[in-house]
Design a protein around this nucleic acid. Structure first.
Length: 288
DNA sequence: CACGCGTGGGT
DNA sequence: TACCCAAGCGT
């Protein structure tokens, strides 16, 4: 297999975007918060939210001291608000189990609420400089193309970590750069729909390009329609709660004009079941 | 392992 | 207009 790490690292040094969490000394808490926000939300939308979040809660203990409702409200329109709840829980766990310090150990990170294979290694590598394979959807696409000669990656699997590990140099700092470089390449050049191969530092080594860009068929799951979905209903309910100045809304005033009243009520129940809302005395509110 | 889970911008 | 896409996670 051709060497991908060297050209990737060289390209990254010259082309990496200047993002807040890449600044030296940004801190493990800042990196962790950024990774939560970046789970399925685009970089450009995350940046301003991240700065506001860290100004309000500069440490895990500061967030843990506030109610979950405050985290969900501050999360605003970033989407998937359960992440705000999970981030708050993780902050409580960090305070209670780790003395308020974001752990470095991958297994300890994995044990925190809302942290999985990607986020645990991203924090260990990008915040603490440890050596692990960090594999997100961008990296999986880069590996699928450059190494496997496919147009799109297959479903996520544990093998992804093995494949990335095989590319990493032994040197710890160099390995961190290659991890970041693969993600950055997938995010800015080797993009899903229209890859910019003319700007790619590993075009000469790319198995997909060498094979003539075969369409391997897209095995990715298709996203369910949003219009009219339960998710849309949940989003409308939660927006009502976030925006309520009184912090509590009579159940009769929670999106009363929703086209499907049954769907709205199921949305309310599911939000309560998820811990994103609480009901009492005919009022609905964010979790206290 | 496949699914459900928000929101907004691009084509 | 619809659909695609975005640094995943828990179940």
């Amino acid at each position: 297999m051709p060497d991908l790490a060297t050209p990737l690292a060289a390209w990254y040094r010259d082309n990496a975007r200047d993002l807040p969490w890449r600044r030296p000394g940004f801190g493990a808490w800042g990196v962790l918060v950024s990774e939560f926000m970046l789970q399925q939300t685009p970089v450009n939308r995350v940046v301003p939210h991240l700065e506001r979040w860290l100004t309000r809660w500069p440490t895990p203990a500061a967030l843990a001291a506030d109610a979950p409702a405050e985290a969900v409200r501050q999360w605003a329109n970033l989407g998937y608000p359960r992440r705000a709840l999970w981030l708050h829980r993780a902050a409580v766990e960090i305070r209670d189990r780790h003395g308020g310090v974001v752990p470095l150990d991958v297994d300890q990170l994995l044990a925190l609420t809302g942290i999985g294979d990607y986020t645990a290694r991203a924090v260990a590598v990008f915040a603490y400089g440890d050596r692990h394979p960090v594999v997100d959807t961008n990296t999986r696409r880069v590996l699928a193309r450059a190494v496997d000669g496919r147009s799109q990656p297959g479903p996520p699997s544990r093998h992804d970590l093995t494949a990335m590990e095989a590319l990493l140099p032994d040197d710890i700092r160099a390995a961190a750069v290659v991890n970041a470089a693969a993600m950055e390449l997938g995010a800015t050049v080797c993009v899903a729909r229209v890859p910019r191969c003319e700007a790619c530092p590993v075009a000469a080594q790319c198995a997909w390009r060498a094979a003539g860009y075969p369409d391997t068929g897209d095995t990715r799951r298709r996203q369910a329609r949003y219009e009219g979905s339960d998710r849309q209903a949940r989003g409308a309910v939660l927006k009502t709660l976030r925006d309520a100045a009184a912090h509590a809304v009579p159940l009769t005033e929670v999106v009363p004009d929703w086209p499907d009243a049954g769907q709205r009520d199921r949305a309310i129940d599911s939000l309560i079941a998820d811990g994103l809302a609480e009901a009492s005395d005919g009022l609905l509110r964010l979790p206290g």
